[in-house]
Design a protein around this nucleic acid. Structure first.
Lengths: 213, 213
DNA sequence: GTCTATAAAGGGATAGAC
DNA sequence: GTCTATCCCTTTATAGAC
């Protein structure tokens, strides 16, 4: 008995499952080893299929990587965008969004994705743009829109909201991102240290962009 | 005629010259292609020696890379440290050091070194630490020491000078570093845009850490 | 120390049967 | 579509003559 409704163009279910297994395996292997060191053999093995099956769904390594990397960039965005910018006053909103940004930057998956995207950006120009759009650009735009509203309300004084948003994220992440990338965290990821870092950035931001007395 | 003074233990001049040629060629090839994609064949060819000569001076690819990467990290530091922190008031000093930092971050050699160090940091933990020490840490320490002096003078108000230095560099470089890494500069490296970026960071910094009225 | 030549292993991609 | 088996090239590293 075949419950497949049988649209001629749609592939059988088993085929789709194998394709998804390949994509999942590729994501795992690429993120762990990087583009060059990830072998199509390893991907096929992790997916539990033969290498020829991989090549049946993707013409070559580059194409497979492009699909996987783009999907990972979208996942990266969701990780940050899930945070509501809730709160009554700018200070509490900045604290919330600041914590979310630091957590996103420190997440192992984010670090792995960043590493690989930085390495391949010259080779895969389109993917570099995709990552930039997903990661810093959308985050800046989102915060910038909020800062502009609050400046209209007179609760902040950010004449150039895009630049102000960049300044906030920069103060927040500059040091800890480097530390995480180069294995120098040294306890800076402890919850109380992170809380202090976020507080310091919010305080400095409000001194620079808070309402003029 | 042989002008070599002939100390038995020191290698002949030709040998040393070949070793240096190998190191120079390795720096070029590694920085251009990354660690994995750089082949020992290519390095030997660029150096103008045989591959066996490369292996005669360095036991394997990892060792050669480690020597080259460490030397490049030192060069990276010099690029920034050459800037005098001259100027009468904090504002002009910050403008000078801000320009130097942006120029350093945008230099093609810096971007290449950053790309490769980010990629290999998990594999070469010691090199990651070396890069972190040379690049952000020493820069932060240097600025931090200045901020502490000026806070003592009453010309600034940076109670936590390390954190303040991080904030300055973060505001300065956050956005433009991403843009450069992912091919999204879009004219942000034009001199007047850079000048504006530095000005904005200095203004925001002085609002947050300038002397309290 | 330096070279030419080669070994040994792993990589991406394909052929052909089912 | 999927598999097994294989091609062909590149890679790191070594052997042996000079």
């Amino acid at each position: 008995m075949n419950f497949n409704q049988g649209v001629a163009e749609s592939p059988p279910v088993r085929t789709l499952a194998k394709r998804q297994a390949v994509v999942a395996a590729a994501a795992q292997v690429f993120l762990e080893h990087g583009y060059d060191s990830a072998s199509m053999d390893a991907i096929a093995q992790v997916a539990g299929v033969s290498k020829q099956t991989v090549y049946n769904h993707f013409p070559n390594k580059e194409t497979l990587f492009a699909e996987v990397a783009e999907a990972q960039c979208r996942r990266f965005l969701e990780l940050f965008a899930a945070t509501e910018m809730a709160g009554d006053d700018p200070r509490s909103v900045l604290l919330t969004i600041g914590h979310a940004m630091v957590q996103t930057v420190l997440a192992p998956q984010s670090l792995r994705l960043y590493r690989i995207m930085v390495a391949v950006a010259p080779q895969f120009a389109g993917l570099g743009r995709a990552f930039f759009d997903m990661a810093p650009r959308k985050a800046v735009r989102r915060l910038s829109a909020y800062l502009e509203r609050e400046t209209g309300n007179g609760r902040l004084a950010a004449r150039d909201p895009d630049r102000a948003a960049e300044h906030f994220f920069g103060m927040l992440t500059y040091n800890i991102h480097f530390r995480a990338l180069f294995g120098m965290l040294e306890g800076e990821d402890a919850p109380e240290r992170i809380a202090r870092r976020v507080l310091d950035a919010v305080d400095a931001f409000l001194l620079a962009y808070g309402p003029r007395d």
